[in-house]
Each structure stands twice: as structure tokens, then as C-alpha cells.
Design a binder for these strands. Structure first.
Lengths: 224, 224
DNA sequence: TTTGCTTTTGATGATTCCATCAAAAGCGGC
DNA sequence: GCCGCTTTTGATGGAATCATCAAAAGCAAA
């Protein structure tokens, strides 16, 4: 999963990025509204953390522009505790959730996880697909009860697929969401890791759609 | 192109089908409203000719049902000369054009051609794509001025692609619109004819999108 | 630095998809 | 029926895509 952090306070920005990266997210950062707007416009993110008070262009304006252009990426707003009107403005502009400063980073983490999950249409923190269960909170995967030992990239790949159950996910989409810009786009890591996942989970969980990508789908759940 | 004729008068039905087939259309026929509705629902047509007075289910109802289900196929209504109210009802129900009985078959032909063209978003009877021009009225194709000699299937294949400039057209879509139901779906005729067209028109007019199908696109015309 | 684990690279082979060709089949006119 | 043209079939080879493996590179903890 790939996340954009737009926050002008350098310490706070860095702190957020570090924690998110530790959790396995790919993170881009911006320090003013214009830069943030540009990145959000051009790169595909799974969630965006957006401060309200920003130089050059304020957070509300950035968000409004995105929403007017039809961007649906979930946005978590950062507001000051006492500026109650900011929250209202944020929600009106299309924010999906907000956190008041100062906050515990864990709270931001939890909310980001939740935003990404909900954007993919999953209510609980556990995503279930047949015998397969992935818990986004604990980052644990079980298959008919027994827990799998997955490496970081294996988990993140499976995590992305599980967030898009029933959809065909292209290799480029995977690369874009699991790596940052300057990753070699015609490497075959994705194939390799799909192979490893199949070896650990059984061959018939991830199907490959030739020329299109990979798909994981619920055996019981009928349509898309 | 594939057309459905729904008309209970057997002579008239047959007459229409014969002329349309002579023009290279693939034609299915139905003699009552229910049969017509079913076919229109299950097979992909480029245009439908629908009589208003039909047994079992009248034409207006058939059309209303299709439109309610979101079907957009252009429909040409056949009405009696003096039943003026029928025409209004037809237009209201979502008919795209109508012809009053008795009519000259040529008029029906012209209107069907026009309906199919307009449904694909082309105003004039001539479809132009770079140096390539296809005249739907005279069934003639020129490339930078010089006329091509095309066989019937070659023309119909190119015709279908030209009606969908900029879109990727799958092999199955082509088979469905150039042949009737019981054509062997995994034959390679489409490939063969694409090959022949390329030989006559130059290799770079029809591009192949691997795993998806073929596309013909305007070199100047920017987007879709 | 060494060790152990994860990730990436590059090579290889299998499979699927597409292009092409020549021969067979179909069809209409004479 | 015979002939010319169009369409279809089947076989073949080439090209793109995907799977798999082993070795190299990267990285972090001891």
C-alpha cells in the first residue's frame, strides 16, 4: 500500500513517514499544499494524510480540488484540537476521517488501516476469502486456521490482493502500490513473489489472468 | 453488423431479412413480441427493426422493457401510416426512428445504416480515419484516394472496426457481430481476414492488442 | 564482520496467443 | 457439371507472457 503524507512540520512529517514505513507502507511526502496536490494528482495512493494548515495552498483547498476532479482516495485530515470549525470544513470538503493534534501515531496508523479497508469495502479489520483470513491489525494470515509465515513483501502483496477481492490486479498496479516511483518497472519480482505465495498457500488461491494480471476471489461469494 | 427483425407478417419479415442479408448483415428474426424481446435480450445486435403491432406482446411494451433494462441498441419502429398516436408512443418508449407502412425496403436500409452510424457517433455517411475512408452508403473504401477491392467479409470486418474507432474490439465481439449464433467460436477466420486487410491496407492501420483484440484508431484524433 | 534472512536479478522453459500459408470447402454463374 | 472467387480449415512457426529456479545482492542483528 502506498501513502502520501502532506504535512509542513518537518519533524511530524518525518515521524509519520518513519512509522508508516516500519509498517510496510510505501510513503511519499510533501511539505506544502501545492506539492501535495501535485503528487496526489499524479501518483496512485491508497490513502492520503493531509494537514489542514499548509503553506502555499491550505489543506481544504487541496482536498476540494481533488474531489472536484473525481479523486476518491480516502483522506485523513490532521486538525488542531481547538479549531472545531476546521473539522466541519474538512468533512464538507470530502475528508473521510480526521485526527486532532497532538495525537499518538498509533491512532493515525489504526485510522489509516481502517480507511484503506473501508475504501475497499471491508467492514471488519479481518478480510476473509474462503479458507483464507488476513488480519489487517495484527498483519497475520491464517489458512483454515493454521498461521502462515510470510515475509514482508509476501504479506504486502497478499494484502493488496485481498483488499481487491474479485478484481483483476495488473502487475503495474501492484508495482505502483508496493514500490515507489523509481522501481524498475519491468522486473519480475511480482511473478517471483506470487510463486512464493502459491507455494505457501496452495496453487489455486491466486489465479492468473493472462495478459491482465492476478486475481484472488471468494469461492462462495458470487459476483464481483 | 447483426440485426434483429421483429415482424409478425411472414412475407414482410422475410422480405426485410432477404434484403438485409444481401447487404451483408447478419439477420435474426422473430414473429412475436415475446420471442423478439428474448432475442434482443440475449444476443448482441447493432440495430433492431421492431413492428408495433405484434402478437403476445406489443412492440411498445417490448421496447419499454429493453430500455428499462438499460439496453441502448438503436431501434427502428414500423408503424401503420394512419396511426399517428403509435409514432408518439414509440418515440416516448425510446425508439430512435420510425418508418410508416407501406414502405420501400431501400428506405429501411438507409435508415438502418444511419442508425448504426449514429449509434457509433458518426454524423456523415462516410467514416474517416487518417487516410482511410469508408462510405457506408456505397460500401466503398478508399485509402489516400485510391479505392480498395474488398470481399464481402473483408468489408464487413473493416466496417465494424471503423464504427468503433479507438476502441479495442475483441475477437468474440467480432464473431458475434459478423456471424450468427452457430458459428464455430474458436475458428481463426478473424485472424486470417485481419491479415488480408493488412495486406491490402498496409500493416499499421489495424493494431493488435495482445490478449484483448484489435483496434483501429485515428492518428490525429487524440482521445477515445 | 559474519551470519541468516529477504529481496532482486537473470536465465531457462512452458504455455498461450497471434500471423501466415496453402489446401480444402463452399457458392454462384455460366 | 465446371470454373472462378470467397471463405474456412488446419498446420506451422514466431512472439509475448508467465512460472520457476538458483545465484547474487541487500540488509539487519549478533
Amino acid at each position: 500500500m502506498r501513502i502520501l503524507v502532506v504535512e509542513d512540520d518537518k519533524d511530524l512529517n518525518r515521524q509519520l513517514c518513519d512509522v508508516l514505513q516500519d509498517q510496510g507502507y510505501v510513503v511519499d511526502k510533501a511539505f506544502d499544499g501545492e506539492e501535495g496536490h501535485f503528487l496526489g494528482d499524479t501518483e496512485p495512493y491508497d490513502a492520503i494524510i493531509l494537514d489542514i494548515g499548509l503553506p502555499v495552498m491550505d489543506g481544504i483547498s487541496v482536498l476540494e480540488r481533488w474531489r472536484k476532479d473525481g479523486k476518491k482516495t480516502p483522506v485523513l485530515m490532521l486538525t488542531a484540537r481547538d479549531r472545531w470549525s476546521d473539522k466541519v470544513a474538512g468533512i464538507d470538503a470530502g475528508a473521510d476521517d480526521y485526527v486532532t493534534k497532538p495525537f499518538h501515531v498509533e491512532e493515525v496508523l489504526a485510522r489509516v488501516r481502517s480507511l484503506i479497508r473501508r475504501a475497499a469495502g471491508h467492514a471488519s479489520s479481518e478480510i476473509i476469502c474462503g479458507d483464507l483470513r488476513l488480519d489487517t491489525k495484527s498483519s497475520k494470515v491464517t489458512i483454515s486456521g493454521t498461521q502462515l509465515k510470510l515475509t514482508s513483501l509476501e504479506f504486502r502483496l497478499l494484502d493488496y490482493l485481498m483488499h481487491h477481492i474479485g478484481e483483476v490486479v495488473s502487475r503495474t498496479e501492484l508495482v505502483e502500490h508496493l514500490y515507489d516511483q523509481d522501481f524498475d518497472r519491468d522486473s519480475n519480482t511480482i511473478e517471483v513473489f506470487v510463486g512464493r505465495l502459491r507455494k505457501k498457500m496452495g496453487n489455486d488461491m491466486i489465479e492468473t489472468i493472462r495478459g491482465m494480471g492476478y486475481r484472488i476471489s471468494d469461492p462462495n461469494g458470487g459476483a464481483a
